[in-house]
Design a protein around this nucleic acid. Sequence first.
RNA 1: AAGGCAGCCUAGAUAACCGCUCCCGGCCAAUUCCGGCUUGGGGGAGGAACUUCCGGACUCCACAGGGCAGUACGCCGUUCGAAAGGGCGGGCUGGCGGGGACCAAUCCCCGUCAGACGGAAAGUGCAACAGAAAAAACACCGCCCGCAAGGGUAAGGGUGAAAUGGUGCGGUAAGAGCGCACCGCGCGUUUAGCAAUAAAUGCGGCAAGGCAAACCCCGUACGGAGCAAGGCCAAACCGGUCCACACGCGGCCCGCGUUCGCGACCCAGUAGGCCGCUUAGAGUAAUGGUUAUCACAGCCCGCAAGGGCUGACAGAAUCCGGGGUAUGGGCUGCCCUUUUU
RNA 2: GGUGCGGUGGCCAAGUGGUAAGGCGUCAGUCUGCAAAACUGAUAUUCGUGGGUUCGAUUCCCGCCCGCACCU
Length: 125
Amino acid sequence: MPSYGLPRSSRLHLKNDFQKVIHGGVRLQYNGLILWWRSGSEPNRPARFAVVVSRKLGTAVVRNRTKRLLREAFRLNRKNIKLGIDLILSPRESEKIKNVHAAQEALKTLCGEAALLNRSSEKNP
RNA sequence: AAGGCAGCCUAGAUAACCGCUCCCGGCCAAUUCCGGCUUGGGGGAGGAACUUCCGGACUCCACAGGGCAGUACGCCGUUCGAAAGGGCGGGCUGGCGGGGACCAAUCCCCGUCAGACGGAAAGUGCAACAGAAAAAACACCGCCCGCAAGGGUAAGGGUGAAAUGGUGCGGUAAGAGCGCACCGCGCGUUUAGCAAUAAAUGCGGCAAGGCAAACCCCGUACGGAGCAAGGCCAAACCGGUCCACACGCGGCCCGCGUUCGCGACCCAGUAGGCCGCUUAGAGUAAUGGUUAUCACAGCCCGCAAGGGCUGACAGAAUCCGGGGUAUGGGCUGCCCUUUUU
RNA sequence: GGUGCGGUGGCCAAGUGGUAAGGCGUCAGUCUGCAAAACUGAUAUUCGUGGGUUCGAUUCCCGCCCGCACCU
């Protein structure tokens, strides 16, 4: 398994999955970023992920850019997140997520809060 | 050098590493479908992809034929185009600047900019306030006749965005296109022009004021909805038919009824999938991230050498053709101002 | 992606060619021992924005900006 890839199987697709995670999962917020997470049906599958962006965030360019940065942040940290988890991110303020470093920082904080990280990476919060 | 106008070009480059998506090839699984992997090869945002303001292809619905309603367009010629919409040339009107007709009014010429620029002598409607009066004449002050009652008048005053042609002379009780000259206006004729229209000339004593981006009339065009159009496949649930078993009616068979079913088929078309769909072609939706070097532009710091920071507008979703708007940089031509020669 | 509707004081809004009603709110006053209620008065509007038509535009026409709803 490559350590950094983000194949189709690691992304959420179905409308049903979104409904389950958002309505049946846990909701956390940090620095203008909302995280929903929920244990998926298959506990040994790698974590799955999606970004939801409202039109209120900005123009198509801003929305696209924010999604790419969050996806990149997830891609780089995917190996540290526990198996079988489905999670959805939704940014509310594009200003807070200007580059990959900010995106990673926010993602790690949220996942640490939810105790979704593996033990090896929990040593350095 | 700065500014304005018009036209054209461009939308950073290279490398490394980590990723995404589609097509082709290969491998694995399966052989009916759905897939997974890949050190292989190739494609992967725009001039506006924005806006959704027009037109078309395409699809479905409606439709014997015709009309009404509604909407859009509207000087003339030519040209490109499937259409919408443009290009070029010309005319007319208006604004500004300059010049001319002795001044003014008004007109003419030149330059420049703008114009949704058919019709107001078919009809209806509208015009606040002010003003006597706003399209209808009954004229407020005034002027004239008259003792008065009353009559004549539209010169002058004043209001307004707009007041029944303008100037001058004659004329008169005072006046008035009442008469005349010139200008304007309308109609006819002739000439020039493909035409819009213009010029000349005759007649008319001036009627026919403004607003159609008010209703409207005339001419031309248009059936409606939109790819979330539309088509195909199709779980689950519900329903139906058959089948098997059991039970009931029955002495038995047929038959009828009821319950049940890892049973078969059908109806229906939801979840979901596929086509529509594209040498970009997705379906939570790719076209990205990091680093280095170079180039360009802007801002800041610095006396300078130089250093630092930032990277315009904006992201395809069926596809074309236009209009409009946003915007970084560059080139060419013209105009104008200042400076220098 | 497509289609339709709207924008008027701080808020809810009427008006649709002649210079913008009404209600809620706010402020001040009267009343009261003090308040509330009631009454009186005031506040302030480039009518989203830029052009055009018109003597005159919130209104009619065109272009932009913003907001809302509907269609799987």
